[in-house]
Design a protein around this nucleic acid. Sequence first.
DNA 1: AATATGTGTGAGATCGATCTCACATTGTCT
DNA 2: AGACAATGTGAGATCGATCTCACACATATT
Lengths: 363, 363
Amino acid sequence: MLTGIPRIKGAKAAHYSCFEKVEMAQKPATLKDVAAFANVSRATAARALNSYGYVGDETAQRVQEAAEKLGYRGNRLAQALRNGQLPIIGCILGDIQNPFFARIAHDIEALARRSRYNLIIGSSEEQLEQEVSLLASLQSLSIRGFIVAPTSDENNIHLKRLIEENVPLVLIDRVVQGIDCDSVVVDNEGGARKAIEYLIAMGHRRIGLLQDDTRIFTSRARLSGYQSALVAAGINPDDRMISVSQSTVEHAIDATIRLFSQKSPPTALFTVDSLMTQGALLAFRSMGISIPHDVSLIGFDDFNLATFTDPQITVVAQPVSEIGLAAARLLFERLSGHSRQTRQIRFETKLLVRGSVSRRQDV
Amino acid sequence: MLTGIPRIKGAKAAHYSCFEKVEMAQKPATLKDVAAFANVSRATAARALNSYGYVGDETAQRVQEAAEKLGYRGNRLAQALRNGQLPIIGCILGDIQNPFFARIAHDIEALARRSRYNLIIGSSEEQLEQEVSLLASLQSLSIRGFIVAPTSDENNIHLKRLIEENVPLVLIDRVVQGIDCDSVVVDNEGGARKAIEYLIAMGHRRIGLLQDDTRIFTSRARLSGYQSALVAAGINPDDRMISVSQSTVEHAIDATIRLFSQKSPPTALFTVDSLMTQGALLAFRSMGISIPHDVSLIGFDDFNLATFTDPQITVVAQPVSEIGLAAARLLFERLSGHSRQTRQIRFETKLLVRGSVSRRQDV
DNA sequence: AATATGTGTGAGATCGATCTCACATTGTCT
DNA sequence: AGACAATGTGAGATCGATCTCACACATATT
């Protein structure tokens, strides 16, 4: 039988001790240090600092002073190891660069900070695999609160397992079938429908849709709102009016150009997110198509430059400032142990009519 | 003396499976579980899984299989407690909503992920106190790598202490006097100077400055570039040409209106960051001032809507995509222990001439 | 007086992974 | 044969905070 190849370890220890003498990096004070300084046991020191159990007044005083003098700050790692959870919230989003997610992350962080939680942010970059591995990595940190914008509707064993293990989880922006947990979303379908109804009311019949990957929940819901509004108005959905692209400005430009290079292009366009709206704007500019004269435009999700363009862009606005807040609240409720029915919050959207839609008499 | 009792194989597993059915929240498998399952000691299991020391081939195999079967994932918390550091990078920025910081955070996260590090993000909200408390909270987590955009130039004992304790630290966007550590900044002064020189070359003499709180490093440096360009051109800096505001769109609007409500307002304006540029744009629109006809504008920091406006805005662009990358690289170099001289990276800026500056013959 | 109760304190176990050490084996070299 | 190295393995200590005990005194109650 072959023997294993020796895995050589080497004189690591010797090296370390050698370094230590050189770099006098003084370690932070531990509870043991404080206890020694106050001349009590660790147990008593802990009692004094966390005020539980019985501690003599005078002793408590002494421990407090010792802690102060030594600049004692508990080691959160050790605490977490002991009590099984680390006061950190894991937040897995599509991309922090997306202002929508950035705002949400910011709000969550601010709220978490007040409860002395920290926030770990991970980008799934819309890839299921990355979402799974990030989640696993955070779980092995004993993190017990997650806010996730799930990339995919399928293959959600990792989320199911979280629920089974009773780990507090809030889904935002998108929900997932078969997963019963707290969630915060907006009425994507209704928002899209409102936009299309408005365009129809303004006389448009050939209404284009610039949409994202249909694997993404929001994209699918918005498509469905688009279709139902058309059908309700007796307009036959036409595949040639729909262009699919990835959610980046660059891809959206190409997709828009494709859509408007047809013989009879749409007279209006609805875009499913703000990056695509921006792509459409740039595409129109490069094609010499003017808004709202040549084409009308409505985008889903408000964005800061919507009011900087001329004309300003009509959009379906989501209550972005509410989403992160609501998600964080739900999560903290669950973290504080009140287990209750899961709650699904759905915010309404609002059509902000600005100047990018014009009435169409002809057709 | 007790005799070595042979380890019983199935006993433990049976116990667990019994519990599993009752309490759904099954705890993740520990090394102890794996060891028991493979019928070896914890020490041996650890050796097999981390490939160090001597382990028999057949034993190693058995441990691997046990780990797989039980879905073992090491508890990073326990590991961190043992070896003194948690593979997490702490990132303290002004505000993640600022696209500049969002981009940087995104890049750092992506790079960290590859090294199996996670990223904790905290917003200082430009408040020293919050920066200090965030840092303390992260330190008590045994986090040993920080990337910080320091809020203030003074009162930096907390940063000094980090350096003394030999904690890897990289400052971005701003440096701090008296703190010798790695840093990544841009040439703020040079960038501002280039902008002002360009305005002067275009015939402007009454050049306004819309600037941020001078406690902020970048703001000070940009002011200094503004002044030195004026002086070099023989123009006397005039306080009435300078307006100070907080770095938000709303405050910038007010400040711009103040500046341009004077008897002889500036003919050109330089804004020190992109939020202020946006504020200025809105203010001009509300005042009926047209760019570049009535006033010329250059902003520091490119931003996505700069190319969406008409005319497009001329800006001093920073290599945003390089900053996060460079910072993360410096940090990981230090984390990997190669202690060396500190390095100060300074990127050049680039004046992107677009359409918001016009030549001024008169005055 | 004997028992209960209320205070105050410390020893030691625990969380999970890792590392040092001691102790077995086996094989190899004089 | 005896000495010595190369392997393989397990017991126990360690990281730092917390919690359960057990124990020591008080004072209060029957």
